[in-house]
Write a protein that binds this DNA or RNA. Structure first.
Lengths: 248, 248
DNA sequence: TACCAATGCGTAGCCTATACACAATTTAAC
DNA sequence: GTTAAATTGTGTATAGGCTACGCATTGGTA
């Protein structure tokens, strides 16, 4: 598999030497660790939340941090993200998207660690087991002011990406149970975008986009007139490049 | 500066150990090299071009590849990109944007190399010196079918990012000389997006956005009625989050 | 001087986003 | 049971922006 001794290749002058002309003397470069950090989003009680873990690093005593791990030499970057998710949430089939790589020299107190940030969307209700792990906790995104390391920056970056992404692609459904009401869907959009939307225009928009399939069922246990339940019908999303601007 | 011996930290079980609990035994993880690859875009003769270098790696004989280099242990990721640009083009003050990190295990034949891709926009006319280096060459983006490594994928990813970026932010000006005509500007948008636009609507749009400053000069040496010259006036771009949809 | 090619400017129509009104349905309270 | 409260479900009117064009103007060229 991985073998540093494969690094004997054509040479060049120091200036001309590029990554494509690695020599075995270049092992000095293998002094950077790479990690993945996962911003795991969930939606509960009308709030967008993120799964955090208590940092036990002295420098960041009592601060929360994102879930992450070092990338192993024999695993893909994305594989590492899935592994973190699987280990921490038990969930397998989740939406995952790479966002940005943070590579400041001093971002990690333990040494040079470059970290690639992913965010993932999970249905929080399928995920109660994690709450038994008292190191882990769901935090409302709005109430997070500081995190360990540069994780607040990472969180902000991922949230921005999520915001722009949902305005074009039908990915929010990953945050909802299979069946949901239009109100839940709208509240979710509002929570992510941080804005209020008009109920009637929102409804109109979604039916026009034809993403929803009527389940012919009604909400249960609501203290008012129950709404219809729908589910996302991926087949109606012609995965072409058409945009799907959301109401503002 | 960097010192692997700082890595003595709190421990946990194998499963619970995260990036935030690095131990010195974790040195096995420092077996991954990280590099940057730069997609350097230019605009010349009505075509979008990219600066490539001849790969002298045996596996990729006679194939072209992007400009890149390993990241040094004591330099930021972005700093490494600027360094590559400076070394290769001599240009300092360029537009640079990180796009994506490619981390497949087998993407580089010499070993495990993870690469973060950046694209940059430069004014090709300020950049003739590079042509004396016969390893480097500008290639029309449209005519590139294969590149060494996974560089074709990287190029495609960066082009897509550029396409979506210019529909919201005024960055194309980095590809043009200080003074330019509306025709040049439109041709550039068309070259990047790969579409034809209506000349009159394009004009209307741009004047409405109020980005352009009339230089009260005319084009020279054109075999037809010369157009006015403009320059980009950044101060008119209120850097708020307003979008600036382009005509299609 | 006539012709050509591109610039510069204006208008009409369509499509979509937005703002807003009202009836229907279910629960909860009295 | 009757009523009030809350929310769902449906429709319409208006404004603004994008799109598709028409046409005169300007400079270069033969």
């Amino acid at each position: 598999m991985y073998n540093p001794d494969n690094l004997h290749l054509a040479m060049g002058t120091a200036l001309q030497r590029t990554i494509h002309q690695l020599r075995s003397e270049d092992r000095e470069f293998f002094q950077i660790a790479i990690s993945v950090d996962c911003v795991i989003f969930g939606f509960d009680k009308n709030e967008l939340k993120v799964l955090l873990i208590k940092s036990d690093l002295e420098e960041f005593n009592n601060q929360w941090s994102l879930l992450g791990d070092l990338v192993r030499p024999d695993e893909n970057l994305e594989t590492a993200s899935y592994r973190v998710l699987k280990d921490r949430t038990g969930l397998d089939d989740v939406y995952l998207e790479q966002v940005y790589t943070f590579g400041e020299v001093n971002r990690h107190p333990a040494g040079r660690v470059i970290s690639t940030a992913y965010y993932s969307l999970i249905n929080i209700k399928e995920h109660q087991p994690v709450l038994t792990d008292n190191e882990l906790h769901w935090h409302p995104v709005n109430e997070i002011n500081t995190l360990a390391f540069d994780h607040k920056t990472i969180l902000d970056t991922c949230l921005e990406r999520l915001q722009s992404k949902i305005e074009e692609y039908p990915i929010v459904f990953n945050l909802l149970p299979e069946k949901f009401s239009l109100r839940e869907l709208q509240t979710l959009y509002e929570a992510i975008l941080g804005i209020k939307m008009d109920r009637r225009n929102f409804r109109k928009k979604f039916f026009l986009m034809d993403w929803l399939e009527d389940m012919n069922e009604l909400e249960q246990d609501v203290p008012h007139r129950p709404g219809k339940l729908y589910r996302f019908n991926a087949s109606r999303f012609s995965s072409g490049k058409e945009k799907t601007p959301m109401p503002v």
